[in-house]
Each structure stands twice: as structure tokens, then as C-alpha cells.
Simulated assay, not measured.
Amino acid sequence: MSGVLVHLPSDGGTEAARGPVSLRLGPGDVARFGRGSASVPVELRLPHPAVSRLAGEIRVTEDHWQLSNLSTAQSYLVENPEGAGEYFRVPPRRAGAPVPFEFARVVLPTQDRLVSFQVFAPDHVYLGSGGSAGQGGTDTLTAFSLDRTSTYFLVLVALCEPRLRDESAVAVATTPQIVERLRNHPVCGRLTARAVSSHIDYLAEEKLRIAAPGGADSGPGGRRNGKREAIVGLVLRFGLVREEDLEILPPRRGAHRRPEVVGR
């Protein structure tokens, strides 16, 4: 691992405006952040009265980086801006919490606004596809076998799109929305609502093996909504559908390109 880049955006909204600050840290390096003072020096200064003088520290290891929350009262959030709302919470006094994101935003709460900075880590390293070849025995079964060229996978991506685009943390696309979303796709131009429902049932029952949700008092609509939410929750948790899969959907009307992150 070649280290990480810590970036603090410019603070143009304050009276003593400052420009952006960037720190490069290598394996074994530690950077402390907080409000700081003459007796408490910090490498990353966050000049807000609600931020502790010594709020936390970043420690870089050989293959990841860790975040320590030195506050006694405030929890911090570590967000994945590229992960459809993915985040985790670092509670007070938690030391050395490993951060799995390649691009992360550390958020500290204050009374009037959120104070945040970004951390860019190198791309994750993956093993080759050889795996355990030559060890003998029967082959390992694939947990979830999805054909990414199939129509049902297009339906699955359209179903997950609202969460992947962070438009809603809870909503999933309805059948009419999926039909309309795929109308301009060369393969799905004549896709009907009944066909979409069949693809969703096939995904839940055959490909993902999701048990029928709801109790005895759940009506058909409740069971179907619960099934959709269970599908989306499962595939996003295990990364079976990712943000880059949105490229297989037709362009959205009036859609604008997302701004690229500068500095990575």
C-alpha cells in the first residue's frame, strides 16, 4: 500500500477563509485532527468551536487505514460517497476502527453545520482467479449465480437504481416505474408489468432464494413490497449490483453527468 491522501476542502464560508489542505500519509504515519491549540498541535485543523481540540487520529497501516475517535461524547460518521449511502458510525473513544472504503468522508457533527474531510486510499488488491485450483475435491458452489446479460438482471438493476443513486434510503422502484425505465432499452422495449413481476419472482425464489416475507395478515401488496425490499437489501449488501451497473440502463431524461472527484 502506497499510503493515503487526506483532503480538507476550503473553508470559504468563514471569516478567516482558508484554502484546501492535503496531507499524504505512508504506512506507519499518524495524523491527528481537531480544533487544536498551542498546547495541542494537530496535523489537520478543524477550526469549529464544537470540535474537540484533539478530536481523533488517522493511522495508516500496510493495507488499510484506521480511524480513532478521541471525543468523549460525539460519534463520527465515515461515509462512502461512491457507495449509495453506505456508512458506519465510530462511537466515542473507539480506537483504531478499520475503514474499508477506497474513498471515504469523515463527518463530525456540530450545531450549525457538518464538518468533514476526505480520505483517498489506493484501490483494493484482489487475489487472482486461480484460488484453490489443484487442491482436489468437488468444486465450490456459487452462492448467487446471476447472468449479467439477462433481462432479469436489467430488471434487478432498475429495481435497485433509487438506492444506488442515493435518491432514497428506503424506497425501491415499482413495477410501472421499471417498465417505464426500461422502455427505451433495445431488449426491453415491449416489457410488460406482468413480465417484470415474473422476473422479480424468479430472482427472489430461484436466483436469490429469499423466503416469502410477511405474516398471515400480510396482503398480496405487502408481500410483494417486502419481497422487493428484501431483494434490494440482499444484492446491495453483497455487492451483487453496484453503481457501475447503472450504465446498462437507458440514459435518464434530463440526467446530468455526476461531477468527478478532484484530487484522486
Rank of each mutant, 00 (worst) to 15 (best):
P47A: 14
P47D: 10
D63W: 02
Q74F: 12
P92N: 14
D63E: 13
S75M: 11
E62F: 00
P47W: 04
S68P: 11
W65E: 05
G85P: 10
A38Q: 13
L67H: 06
E86F: 02
Q66C: 10
P47V: 07
V40C: 04
P81K: 09
A84T: 05
G34Y: 00
R24T: 07
V42P: 13
R53L: 04
S52W: 03
P91H: 15
L54I: 01
P41D: 00
L44K: 01
V30N: 07
V51E: 00
G34A: 12
S52Q: 04
T72S: 15
P91N: 12
S52G: 05
A73N: 15
R89P: 02
A84V: 04
G56D: 06
E62H: 01
A84Y: 06
I58M: 12
H64V: 03
R53F: 05
L67R: 00
G36F: 02
I58N: 11
R53C: 01
P41I: 00
G34S: 01
F88I: 08
A31F: 07
A31P: 09
S71Y: 06
P49W: 04
D29V: 10
L77P: 07
L77R: 10
V40E: 04
E82F: 00
A50I: 00
E43N: 14
E43D: 14
T61Q: 08
G85W: 04
F88S: 08
P41T: 03
Y87N: 11
S75H: 13
E82I: 01
R89S: 12
G36C: 04
V51K: 02
V40G: 01
D29K: 12
L44W: 02
H64E: 03
T61F: 04
N69S: 12
L70C: 02
P92H: 11
V40Q: 03
S37V: 03
E79I: 14
V60E: 03
G34Q: 05
A73V: 05
E86I: 11
A73C: 15
A50H: 10
S75W: 08
P91I: 15
Q66D: 15
G83M: 14
T72K: 09
Q66Y: 15
E82A: 09
E43T: 13
H48T: 09
G83K: 13
R45I: 05
D63G: 09
S71P: 06
S71N: 07
L67C: 13
R32S: 10
E62S: 14
V78E: 02
S37A: 09
E79M: 13
E62T: 05
S52V: 00
L54S: 12
S75E: 13
F33M: 03
G85T: 06
E79W: 15
H64L: 08
Q74N: 15
I58Q: 04
